[in-house]
Amino acid sequence: MAASAVVAASAVVACGSATTAISTYVPALFGGLGSIVGAIIAGSAAWLVSSANRAEERQRDALQREEERKRDVLQRAFDSAGSHMATLSFDKYVEFCEAYAKLYRTSLVEIFRLGPCKEAMAYSAKLSNLRSEWVLWSTVETDAALKRFEDAMFEMGSDAWQTGSEFAANVPNRAELIQRMYRRFCELAGLGVWNGEKLTDDLAVASLMTAIRRTLGTDQFDKLRQETVKRALEDFTRSEVPGYRATR
């Protein structure tokens, strides 16, 4: 009986000790776990912020490299265009285009004044001779484009000559040639319609000028000039205004 009491008392003491131990260490254990979780969360947040910063830096670097690449392309374009031979060739070509355009306009004025006439053959020959004189500074593309207009002018003059009154009896297809002659005249004049037929503007003087501008690269040089001025202004503004960021 006494022994049982002693055992029961010992059990009670042991249970009390265990309860005390649990009460002491469990909060400490959970507190430590909380600190670890908090550290993990803080570390993750710091990693995310760092990754976002690195991504932004990479984006800025990529934009800067692209900007430098564009500037390099522009610089190479100007360096190439500024070489002595390129400058000389371009200047000669511009001079040829100006002379050709002037003679072509003068020829058309005379043709419009006289109407379809045999003199158109002489005007075409003058244009062809001028083109031959500048053959060293012209291009294959330009020659092909201008020759179309010269051929149309010569054909009209030839038809006018063949359908003259002195050859009327010897030209069986005179009516057909007259129709073609006036059709060419309307095409060169850019009238748009002949005898109820809608004409293209391929042979109109405006098309000739467009072809010359295209071979000269007039529109492209204008775009290049605008881009150069724009970038120069952006560089100036960036250097003068702190925190300025160009918008594109």
Score class of each variant (00 low, 15 high):
Leu177Ile: 03
Gln179Met: 05
Tyr182Gln: 13
Trp194Tyr: 15
Ser107Asn: 14
Met121Gly: 02
Arg180Pro: 04
Arg231Gly: 06
Ser158Ala: 11
Leu136Lys: 13
Ser138Tyr: 00
Glu141Ser: 15
Glu197Met: 09
Phe112Asn: 09
Gly217Ser: 10
Val229Cys: 04
Ile178Trp: 08
Val140Trp: 05
Glu227Ala: 14
Ala211Asp: 00
Ser207His: 01
Asn129Gly: 05
Ala206His: 07
Ala189His: 02
Gly190Ser: 03
Gly157Phe: 00
Met156Asn: 05
Val140Lys: 12
Val205Met: 06
Arg174His: 09
Arg231Ala: 09
Leu108Met: 15
Asn170Thr: 13
Gln179Cys: 05
Phe185Lys: 00
Ser124Leu: 03
Ile212Arg: 04
Met121Thr: 10
Ile178Ser: 11
Asp201Gly: 12
Asp201Ile: 07
Trp194Val: 11
Asn170Trp: 07
Phe167Ser: 11
Leu216Ser: 05
Ala206Gln: 12
Ala152His: 00
Val109Cys: 03
Phe167Pro: 02
Asn195Ser: 12
Leu136Asn: 10
Trp194Glu: 09
Asn170Met: 06
Trp134Thr: 06
Ile111Gly: 07
Tyr182His: 15
Tyr182Asn: 15
Asn195Pro: 02
Glu166Ile: 12
Phe236Glu: 14
Phe167Gly: 06
Leu130Ser: 08
Arg231Thr: 02
Leu146Ser: 08
Asp202Pro: 08
